[in-house]
Simulated scan of single mutants.
Amino acid sequence: MANKKLNIGKVPNLRFPGFESEWETKKLGEIATFSKGKGISKSDIEENGITECIRYGELYTHYREIITEIKSKTNVNTSTLVLSEENDVVIPASGETTIDIATASCILKSGIALGGDLNIIKTENNGIFLSYYLNSKKKMEIANLAQGISVVHLYSSQLASLSLSLPKLNEQSKISSFLALLDERVQTQNKIIQQLETLIQALRNQIFKRKRRFTDTDGRDSSDWKKVKIGDILKIGSGKDYKHLQSGNIPVFGTGGFMTLVNDYLYDGETVCIGRKGTIDKPMYHKGKLWTVDTLFYTHSFQSCIPKFIFHLFQTINWLEYNEASGVPSLSKTTIEKIGLQIPSIEEQERIASFLSKVDQKIQIEKAILEQLEMQKKYMLQQMFV
């Protein structure tokens, strides 16, 4: 994919062999026509609908650059709808933020009903190439075109003014095919992770409902589990604000996960973090020095229990059941301490923790692979377009 440079700014940094001509600069309005979708409300969505449809909000949450499988269906009369043609590119016409609205997807199926608040772009160019291009090199430019405060809007007249650099159709096809294959690999990796996460949760449910038992080293059945309260077997510490601390090498955990680094720590050892406010239903395990923000609890001083076992057990608790707020979900230390559990002997805890941790380690390995694939895709998107 070495690039033979011609005119700086007229060719990409990475290029497939055999392509040498400069890319041509054109306005999107010169190579495309524009139209709008027609309203399909949430109440129009039917599980057994006869017409596949796309609503604008799904571009943010469900679809990527290529749309082949359609999520929603409707029974609205097709004579009142706008239907897609293969190679159509759709971009939201309204949204909550300018970045969200700069989201393009190419539809590879004809006859799909396109909902309101969708800009429809029709072009003789490769729609997949155009979607990847708009979502990478042109994303910020599109975001800057959007107008509005509480709700932002993006009009076809604004999109028409967008300046693009385009190769010949055969090079567009080569680039789009390569990126589609890379995306397919990313999606496959996501499915692998989803399947493993489903597996480990099923195993946890079997183990903690005692449908799956672990024998001791002599092959004898494990001892009975005993009832305890969380406050009987561990202590709960509160996180603190960290913004006044300087950058360092200690991880800071919040309810959303790892956040940043500081030069001090609240706790050193094994811990299971529990959300105090916000995301309260995603316990996290950590070993070593850490700092937790004030929306997160951390556990310590474990008695008759193993932290990694507790982490897996906490994954089976419906934490939202203990929510104490009508708005943003929140938990109190007192409430957590009163939650009842059943735990086995230390020996069985060790076997359970070891067994489940092997599956969890596999998940972390697959997530690391996914991160590398996404970084590769990001790099390619930056290098393969002008």
Rank of each mutant, 00 (worst) to 15 (best):
Ala143Cys: 04
Trp23His: 00
Ile107Arg: 04
Lys333Glu: 12
Ser177Tyr: 10
Lys287Ala: 09
Gly127Phe: 00
Arg351Asp: 07
Ser238Phe: 09
Ile8Gly: 12
Cys53Asp: 08
Thr292Pro: 02
Phe208Thr: 02
Leu370Ser: 07
Ile346Lys: 15
Ser238Lys: 11
Ser41Glu: 12
Tyr56Ile: 06
Ser136Met: 03
Tyr379Glu: 13
Phe214Gln: 05
Val152Glu: 01
Lys243Gly: 12
Met375Ile: 11
Ser157Gly: 11
Leu266Val: 01
Gln246Asn: 15
Ser156Pro: 12
Lys71His: 10
Ile120Phe: 06
Lys38Glu: 10
Lys73Asp: 07
Ile236His: 05
Cys305Gln: 06
Ala160Gly: 11
Ala102Thr: 03
Leu373Gly: 04
Leu320Phe: 15
Ile121Val: 11
Thr271Glu: 07
Lys378Cys: 06
Tyr298Trp: 00
Asn135Asp: 06
Val11Leu: 13
Lys240Gln: 13
Phe297His: 00
Arg204His: 05
Gly340Thr: 11
Ser173Trp: 13
Ser326Tyr: 03
Tyr265His: 07
Gly340Leu: 09
Arg204Asn: 14
Asp218Ile: 06
Thr279Glu: 09
Ile200Tyr: 03
Cys53Ala: 09
Val186Asp: 03
Cys106Ile: 02
Lys5Cys: 08
Leu179Glu: 07
Ser84Lys: 00
Val262Glu: 00
Leu14Gln: 15
Ile306Thr: 07
Ser330Ala: 13
Pro283Asp: 04
Lys42Leu: 10
Glu321Val: 07
Leu162Gln: 05
Ser157Phe: 15
Asn3Tyr: 08
Ile54Leu: 08
Gln194Lys: 13
Thr80Pro: 08
Ser79Phe: 14
Ile67Arg: 00
Ser41Val: 10
Ile339Phe: 05
Glu171Met: 03
Ile193Ala: 09
His286Phe: 12
Lys287Ile: 06
Tyr265Glu: 01
Val151His: 10
Thr33Gln: 09
Leu199Gln: 12
Glu22Thr: 01
Arg276Val: 05
Lys71Arg: 11
Gly127Arg: 01
Lys27Thr: 12
Ser131Leu: 01
Tyr132Cys: 02
Asp264Gln: 12
Ser326Pro: 04
Thr25Pro: 07
Leu59Met: 08
Phe311Ala: 03
Glu22Lys: 01
Thr198Lys: 15
Ile236Ser: 06
Asn249Met: 08
Ile54Thr: 06
Leu313Asp: 09
Asn77Pro: 11
Ile280Lys: 05
Pro92Met: 05
Gly257Pro: 05
Phe309Tyr: 14
Asn263Pro: 01
Ser105Arg: 00
Thr103Asp: 02
Leu108Asn: 10
Ile40Thr: 06
Met380Ile: 05
Ser301Leu: 07
Lys73Pro: 05
Gln303Lys: 11
Thr198Cys: 15
Ser35Met: 05
Glu337Asp: 10
Asp221Ser: 13
Ala93Glu: 14
